[in-house]
Simulated assay, not measured.
Amino acid sequence: MASYLRFENVTRRYGTFTAVNDVTLDIEKGETFSLLGPSGCGKTTLLRMAAGFDQPDLGRVYLDGKDITPLPPDQRPVNTVFQSYALFPHLSVRDNIAFGPKIAKWTPGQIAKGVDEMLELVDLKAHGDKKPAQLSGGMKQRVALARALVNKPKVLLLDEPLAALDLKLRQRLLVELDAIHDEVGITFIYVTHDQGEAMSISDRIAVMNKGVIEQVGPPAEIYEAPRSSFVAAFIGDTNFLDGKITESIDSRFSRCDVKDFGSIVIDNDKAVSVGDRIHLSIRPEKLVVSRDKPAMSPMDNAVEGKVEDVIYYGSHTRYWVRCGEWRMCAEMQHRTFQLDETLPKWGDTVWLLWDANDGFLLEQYREEDEGMLTLPDA
Rank of each mutant, 00 (worst) to 15 (best):
Ala2Pro: 15
Arg12Thr: 11
Gly15Thr: 10
Phe17Arg: 13
Ile27His: 03
Gly30Phe: 03
Leu36Tyr: 05
Pro38Ile: 08
Gly40Lys: 07
Pro56Thr: 08
Gly59Met: 08
Val61Asp: 01
Leu63Ser: 01
Pro73Lys: 09
Pro77Leu: 04
Thr80Arg: 02
Gln83Ala: 10
Ser84Glu: 12
Tyr85Trp: 13
Asp95Lys: 15
Ala98Met: 01
Ile103Phe: 04
Gly114Leu: 01
Val115Asp: 00
Val115Arg: 00
Glu120Asp: 13
His127Val: 09
His127Glu: 11
Gly137Asn: 06
Leu145Gly: 00
Lys152Tyr: 01
Lys154Arg: 10
Lys154Gln: 14
Pro161Ile: 04
Ala163Cys: 06
Leu177Val: 05
Thr187Arg: 00
His193Ser: 12
His193Asp: 09
His193Cys: 10
Glu197Cys: 02
Met199Asn: 09
Ala220Phe: 11
Glu221Cys: 10
Ala225His: 15
Arg227Glu: 15
Glu247Gly: 02
Arg255Ser: 13
Ile266Ser: 00
Ser273Asn: 14
His279Lys: 15
Val289Lys: 03
Pro294Glu: 10
Lys306His: 05
Ile311Asn: 11
Tyr313Asn: 13
Gly314Glu: 11
Cys323His: 03
Gly324Val: 00
Glu325Asp: 12
Thr336Leu: 14
Glu341Trp: 13
Thr342Gly: 07
Val350Ser: 03
Val350Leu: 07
Val350Ile: 12
Trp351Ala: 02
Leu353Asn: 05
Phe360Gly: 05
Leu375Asp: 08
Leu375Gly: 07
